[in-house]
Design a protein around this nucleic acid. Sequence first.
DNA 1: ATTAATTACGTAAACGTTTCCGGAGATTAA
DNA 2: TTAATCTCCGGAAACGTTTACGTAATTAAT
Lengths: 354, 354
Amino acid sequence: MKPVNLKKLAQELNLSIATVSRALNDRYDISQPTKDRVRALANKLNYEPNHHASSLRRNKSKTIGVVIPEVDNHFFSLAIKGIEEVARRNNYHVLIYLSHEDYQRELAVMRLLASGRVDGVLLSVASESQDFAHLDLLRERGIPVVLFDRVYAGKDMPKVTTDDYESGYRATQHLLEAGCRVIAHLTIAHTLSISQRRMQGYQAALQQFRVPYDEELVVCEAAGKPQSASLPQTLLTQRPDIDGIFAAVESLAMSSYEACHNLGLRIPKDVKIIGFSNLKTASLLAPPLTTITQPAYEIGKEAASVLFQAVVKNRLVSAAQSKELKSELIVRASTASTTLSSKEPVALALALGR
Amino acid sequence: MKPVNLKKLAQELNLSIATVSRALNDRYDISQPTKDRVRALANKLNYEPNHHASSLRRNKSKTIGVVIPEVDNHFFSLAIKGIEEVARRNNYHVLIYLSHEDYQRELAVMRLLASGRVDGVLLSVASESQDFAHLDLLRERGIPVVLFDRVYAGKDMPKVTTDDYESGYRATQHLLEAGCRVIAHLTIAHTLSISQRRMQGYQAALQQFRVPYDEELVVCEAAGKPQSASLPQTLLTQRPDIDGIFAAVESLAMSSYEACHNLGLRIPKDVKIIGFSNLKTASLLAPPLTTITQPAYEIGKEAASVLFQAVVKNRLVSAAQSKELKSELIVRASTASTTLSSKEPVALALALGR
DNA sequence: ATTAATTACGTAAACGTTTCCGGAGATTAA
DNA sequence: TTAATCTCCGGAAACGTTTACGTAATTAAT
């Protein structure tokens, strides 16, 4: 109720406010005895400096903003964990904002953040976003921005991503080697460079195996979520010849599983599925899902580290600071080659047949 | 680089700083033409008020703090989603802190938050926490705190929880009705009221079915994580007579699955498993997991709503504002009664047998 | 002993905003 | 005409902190 601030401490100790402040900040021109006295009382009264006053004066908020499309998703929640970890180590605070894949929300948030509320921003852009002028808004104000995973290629800013082209290539290659020849590619907004690169990997692998590229097999999830759940199902009914699915995001892999259940398709016998995913339970699924797993936690840590390099130096950073981490292909039963073993598919078929 | 603040706007418009401020805040004593002029320029120059100056002056930060044990967990990430939603609607910002189940971290965070950085706090306590004096710290400063899910019963503060006793009862009852007689209960820190209530429900159901309570069957996950993964496995080897597992948290349900895999135990034939969980993929597991699912998103929304009632009224709230939401029992194959069908367990056994 | 350097602290301005107080000018009432 | 009211705006203080500058007292240098 009654705040304990520098004035209070100063009165109690018969010192000036300035001296108390400098003692707490461990400045050189304060004697050790005084420092001890001040700290003792500060501790006793549970003094905590007023963050807003301090931020206002220093023009430094000790806070970063994190803007992501969603949080109920293992990739982003792990990324947050990494970000929080690095922030805490630097004595920084983390503000979180969800764009819900909505460009307008993303824009509104960026506007808010342009007023000195944060010292830096980590952004993973919404799938809807096509205009990136809001990034300049922060730039003009001298607030460094680091993009991660869902990046925008056009701007000269640091980006932390994974090897999406290679991952897309390896995923498709894996399906091809398992015998698939009609491989669907389920993806999100193709305006995202991340989607484009995965797609390019997909195409390159097809070409390598002399499998013709079929536009009909590439389906893009629209921003409006409702139909996306049934997206794999409609595709699978339209094209019963599909024998492999490469899902560029976790949710599409899951709805592919559901679609196969509903349509009575057996995984991996009828359709093999591989998907980008950070699901901890991938190995417990029926059947266990082959995944491309991004190092989400490390991405978060890396992105935050790059940002802090900029924040402490108090200057903007360029694309030169960008990093690319490697994703991991984890082979499980959902892409098991049906020619290898005959026993296993039967069991799986039975398990799924109910 | 060059900030656009009230002074700048005032100079440009030949007005005083006070007038510009009042115009932007839509005060009654500013003429409409002036308001229009001010707003036009503010818009043109992308003016955003300095949050720290404003917070300092108004003694209101328009920010709440959220302190949770972890984020890579569907329950908490969904809760955050709900919290962010309500916060955004009230034009509030959300600071996030992870305690990592560590009391010291939780304490440190609460200390930081006691300095007027936030207008309110949402807390789900770490499993390690036994001392709750840090809650008083905020209370003394007049900062309202709302506990959710992992609450502490001892304090007179609002709590948003689920019907943990009933859920524990129903979960155990469900296993008993499915034929289980030796039911293990895997839980976390028993200092948490949430664990105690689930446990009480467990005991009550046992009593109702005249099954003796066996202390050995109740295992509590320690704070140090490493051994918790193998916790179900050691229990299942020590007590091969176990025919049912009730996991009070998602992670323990998952490690129970893994333990059964490793030990060659068939679910649900040898062991039936039910667990608290918000896994979206519960129905895709092998076998699909019967869950007690908490309305995590709603809990987040509700907790935030209660907090905002306190924040806008600028006063502390009491336990009277507490809410209890209902969890849902979702029956799936992991607790299927083995006497019902003979075909299904065979398939599942085969599927798991590899 | 006088001056210069050093130590340890106080004074006051500044950060950008909000708000109390007041005041000039216009309008109305008497 | 004078007084009262109202409308619209400016001056200045305040929020709690940091920091440039100043200064008295002590120590070192000459």
